[in-house]
Amino acid sequence: MRPIVLASASPRRAELLAQLGVQFSICPVDIDETPLPGERADHYVERLAREKAAAGLARTGSASALVLGSDTSVVCDGMILGKPGDESGAQAMLARLSGRTHVVMTGVALAGEHGCFARLVTTEVRFRHLSEQEITAYCRTGEPMDKAGAYGIQGRGGAFVSGLWGSYSAVVGLPLGETAGLLADAGQPVYMYWGHTEESRDE
């Protein structure tokens, strides 16, 4: 089986990829995440996913490796809400999302010797109305600071969500169905790894 590499330092993405049962290594990359002038949100997240995967492949120096890259953005009123720069920025983002439906776009890309292939997942998320007190309390936990849109649906921020239409795993940071599909297209379906877990070797 070909080595699988996750080009991300995100523990959330690593946990999701592990959920698929595959064996992988981690190779964080550092790329410029500045949107291009006039760039649409869907183009932006897919471009970053591709660039992360390509950068990871270059770092591995392996001809046989398959490298996954992913990027997630929260979009509200056509504006990309990235990671907040400070607590006041996080509070402003959450106030903007309060009581409204926004879009979470996640791109996932797989780079290998035969090229780089990507898929884009769009999910709608509805927030209930948030009081100033809970926004302030949430921001003081520090949880929003490294997350697009200033919230983590898998953490305390999940208390804000009143509805979701689409992929939960994509909102967390890595769409599992699409990731499995890319690996299958590359000749590495995830079920190939299910007989090679630590549990099966210990039996």
Rank of each mutant, 00 (worst) to 15 (best):
G69Q: 07
R96E: 04
P37I: 12
G115W: 14
F24Q: 01
V45S: 10
H129R: 15
V161F: 13
E113R: 15
R96Q: 13
D77Y: 08
R50E: 01
G21R: 03
A186P: 11
A109G: 09
R126K: 12
E15I: 07
V190I: 15
H129Y: 10
L130N: 05
E51Q: 13
A90G: 09
H196L: 15
L176R: 07
A9V: 13
R12A: 05
L36P: 11
S88R: 14
G173M: 04
A150Y: 02
G69A: 10
Y138T: 07
Q188T: 12
G163S: 03
V74Q: 00
A55T: 15
A9D: 00
S25R: 11
Q133H: 13
T60K: 01
A137G: 07
L48V: 11
Y138S: 05
R40G: 04
A184F: 09
D202H: 11
T141H: 02
T136K: 08
Q23R: 13
G195R: 15
G56Q: 02
V172N: 00
M1E: 00
L97I: 14
G89N: 04
K147R: 06
Q133Y: 08
L120N: 09
A53I: 14
E178M: 10
I135W: 07
S200F: 15
H196D: 14
G142M: 09
E46K: 14
L164D: 05
Y44K: 00
V103D: 00
L20T: 08
Y44S: 00
T179G: 01
